[in-house]
Amino acid sequence: MGEGFTPRIVGFLCNWCSYAGADLAGAAKLEIPASLSVIRVMCSGRVDPVLVATALLQGADGVLIAGCHPGDCHYREGNYYARRRFALLKKTLETLGLDTERLMLAWVSASEGQRFGEVANQFAGQIMELGPNPMKTKISL
C-alpha cells in the first residue's frame, strides 16, 4: 500500500434501486468515496462476469455490484441470478488464485441512501487496505 494511493472502484448499480439509493445519498449530502465510478445497469442480473473481469484486468482496484434486496427485483428475479453469477465468478477467480476480496455484492434499495453511503465507504476502506490491484502492473493480461 503506497503513499497517496487513490483506489479506483467500479460500481455496477441497478437502475431501480441502488442507483437511486446512491442518488439519495448524494441528495442527503452524505459522503461517498470519490474513488467510486458508477456504471448504471438495468438490473444487477445483467452484470456478466466478463464485465467484472474486464474491469479488474484493466486495473480497477475493486468492483462493487449492488442490486435490489431479494424479493424486490423490478424484474422479479434478476437479483437471484446476479447472486448465482457472482458466486460463479468468485469461485472461478478463487480457484485461479486471484483475489476475491476486491469484489463485493450488496443489496441496497432506493430508499437506503444511508446504507449506500455505508456500503460504499466500507468497501472503499477495504480496498484502501488491500492496496493497488496487482494485475494493474502486470503487462500480459
Partner: peptide, 16 residues
C-alpha cells in the same frame, strides 16, 4: 442449469 435457476434462500455468505 445453475445459471438459469435459483433458490430464494442460498449463497447468503456471498452477499455483503
Amino acid at each position: 442449469l445453475p445459471v438459469t435457476t435459483f433458490k430464494p434462500e442460498e449463497f447468503a455468505a456471498t452477499v455483503d
